[in-house]
């Protein structure tokens, strides 16, 4: 008779959320500690307006980090999320301001452009077998260049599209609960995260995202068309970057073609702080959200304490190294 006394009790949902749980907890505790620390250090920090500013600042990076999480769980990396965001913002500008499309159509065009670019990256990686780092590095530069070319290196303003700035800056929640004027950008981040979480945990696409990162060859030998699924994941990530593009364009009420470089690294940092393994197979959206919040709280808190911008960057770098070191140390102990 075979017995399996070595089985751990598992939570009902998927069992995928388990692996990064420790670091997620650690990340969450760090977030709380940061919030408490900054509140003590500065009475201005805990103001509702400041909290909302933090959330607003999280929204764009958070959405990009969700996209990066999907790709990273497959064992890949996406360096193009930042410039893809900008590219999509420019596409929205062209569609709405230059072509005069209706609002919804313009937004849809931007998101579709994002998905299409993601599909290109996915094709480079899956079909042409270019390492994800290189494929998306190339994509990053291509998109940066295309954004400048299409826009003629000038910002495109959305003054002719009433309501566009409300996508990010308006507050549906504030209309219902005037005490909580949480901007729509935050609401959108929340919805994107919820959807991504659902896809990862409950759908075939999500299952293959983890499976690819865990052992791609085994998935292939199980008769799964790994290339096609990988391309779909990159396309989905691209579409989410498109939403990020809409958010940033709405917040600035303009598409700034020179923007975007550096966003990919902030997104990846949020993913890593949130406990997603860069070697693939493990990760959660909730962790990524906490990671993005930690970065926003840090930046905001240090600014409230009047710490110079230069030092904020230094601290962020140190936090990333600490977060990953904590995870490594734990994993080594667990053996």
């Amino acid at each position: 008779m075979i017995t399996a006394t070595d089985i751990e009790k598992k939570k009902p949902l998927a069992g995928l959320s388990e692996s990064g749980a420790y670091q997620k907890l650690l990340a969450f505790a760090s977030l709380i500690a940061l919030l408490i620390g900054f509140s003590i250090a500065s009475p201005n920090f805990m103001q509702t307006s400041n909290m909302i500013a933090i959330l607003q600042a999280t929204s764009v990076n958070g959405v990009l980090a969700v996209a990066a999480t999907l790709v990273i769980i497959t064992g890949g990396i996406d360096l193009s999320v930042g410039t893809l965001m900008t590219f999509c913002a420019v596409i929205a500008g062209v569609a709405l301001t230059y072509l005069g499309m209706p609002l919804l159509l313009g937004v849809a065009a931007a998101i579709a452009a994002g998905a299409l670019c993601g599909l290109c990256s996915g094709t480079f990686v899956a079909k042409m077998k270019i390492p994800p780092f290189i494929a998306t590095l190339g994509m990053m530069l291509i998109l940066k260049g295309l954004s400048l070319v299409i826009s003629g290196t000038r910002p495109i303003y959305f003054n002719d599209t009433p309501g566009f700035d409300q996508i990010s800056r308006g507050s549906l929640i504030g209309e219902v609960f005037p005490a909580l004027p949480i901007p729509n950008g935050v609401l959108i981040l929340f919805l994107v995260a919820l959807a991504a979480s659902y896809i990862l945990g409950r759908t075939v696409l999500g299952r293959y995202t983890f499976a690819l990162g865990s052992n791609e060859e085994a998935v292939r030998l199980s008769g799964v068309n790994t290339d096609a699924w990988k391309m779909r994941i990159y396309a989905l990530a691209g579409g989410i970057c498109g939403i990020g593009g809409i958010l940033i364009a709405s917040r600035l009420n303009s598409a700034q073609p020179a923007l975007g470089l550096g966003y990919e690294l902030e997104a990846i940092a949020a993913v890593v702080i949130g406990g997603t393994s860069l070697s693939g197979g493990r990760g959660t959206i909730l962790g990524t959200l906490i990671g993005a919040l930690i970065m926003a709280v840090l930046t905001n808190g240090l600014r409230v304490l009047s710490v110079a911008q230069e030092w904020q960057t230094v601290v962020t770098g140190a936090i990333i190294i600490l977060a990953v070191y904590a995870d490594m140390a734990r994993r080594k102990k667990a053996g």
Binding site: L16, R207, F210, A211, N215, V224
Partner: peptide, 14 residues
């Protein structure tokens, strides 16, 4: 050829 990060059932029906 198993995927260590997935659970038993998920592996069997991949």
């Amino acid at each position: 050829s198993l995927m260590n990060d997935l659970n038993v059932a998920q592996n069997i029906f991949i």
